[in-house]
Amino acid sequence: DVAKAIINLAVYGEAQNRSYERLSLLVDTVGPRLSGSKNLEKAIQIMYQNLQDDRLENVHLEPVKIPHWERGEESAMMLEPRLHKMAILGLGSSIGTPHEGITAEVLVVTSFDELRRRASEARGKIVVYNQPYVNYSKSVQYRVSGAVEAAKVGALASLIRSVTSFSIYSPHTGIQKYQDGVPKIPTACITVEDAEMVARMASRGSRVVVQLKMGAKNYPDVDSFNTVAEIIGRKYPEQVVLVSGHLDSWDVGQGAMDDGGGAFISWEALSLIKDLGLRPKRTLRLVLWTAEEQGGIGAFQYYQQHKANISNYSLVMESDLGTFLPSGLQFTGSEKARAIMKEVMKLLQPINVTQLFTAGEGTDISFWIQAGVPGASLLDDLYKYFSFHHSRGDTMTVMDPEQMNVAAAVWAVVSYVIADREEMLPRN
């Protein structure tokens, strides 16, 4: 009755709300944890101590190099057809503007296609993308590539509608990528409300002029660490189930939901199993990634350093879509492995989280999944998640201790059973 014991301990017993309390202590203490920031390195040192105090095994830090970008002071002011201060969040890795800023007329488009059709109008302008929110993975392309596509047609800067499912005048940040051979221009996200207002003004034929100022700066890469802790397997210690979340966040809010929650339910999974005196046949490895938000930078280096042992990884798991009440588990693997995972999900009947979806995903575990290791991620309320994602609203106020208890129970049952059953998950 292992599953029942884990569920009782996490949801109704001594350990309830522990992951929420631990998370709130960390994020209230250090705040948001941007790649390259002192806050992130402080959080790593605190977690290194926490995991040792929690009497986990083989607790250690694995050194990596990560990007260091700083936002600096930034602002945007609409000057015509009337004065209006625009809330913005510059995008990660963007360059800054000259001190006096960039003042230019805007060209509003709703898609890359429209931008290419109107390329002749773009030279010397600030391109405003007012792309509709379809879903995160489709719409995020405008944030990631908006500057490059605007620069290709001679624009001076790009302002991109925040990639969010709901807005109360909240800009959302995130990483953007330049392209070799394409001039670098400053780029930031604006609110849904401002993107739509500017679009309405332009569609009536008004000339819209904006002044953008950004103090953003890119610095040389800095040292950081992936944080690792284990419960060493009692029979096949060289074989691994990897449970993970990322410890870094954007430099807004507290980085509680994205994805402090995922990091702390991963820690909680090992604590629950340890508290019950359980030791699975295979090693349960917790990894708290660094610099996920810049593109899985810490996780890629971890993969490079450990891929020689890939045949020993039975399952890789990452929680990076929030830890609200889970609707189930996303899973990528063979049909045989999926059939086994479906049996495992039945053990979660007591908390009614038994659905197994496709497309297990996670920036940090994608390298392992692409190399054939079965992968799993926690799925929950994406509408709520992307409403707060990468915004100043990402704080403990969004989190719910009871929902985190359930998420931790799912995470602990799945990771323990796969780590303890006699065989590894089948691959092909």
Binding site: D1, V2, A3, K4, Y236, Q239, S311, S314, K336, A339, I340, E343, V344, K346, L347, V413, Y416, V417, D420, R421, E422, E423, M424, L425, P426, R427, N428
Partner: peptide, 24 residues
């Protein structure tokens, strides 16, 4: 039992189902 090094299980799916059910 095999540890799935060669991708072939020594157990039938029914045995696997029973194995997992005992974790309940």
């Amino acid at each position: 039992a095999a540890i799935y090094q060669n991708g072939v299980s020594q157990n039938t799916f029914q045995e696997i189902k029973e194995e997992i059910a005992h974790y309940k």
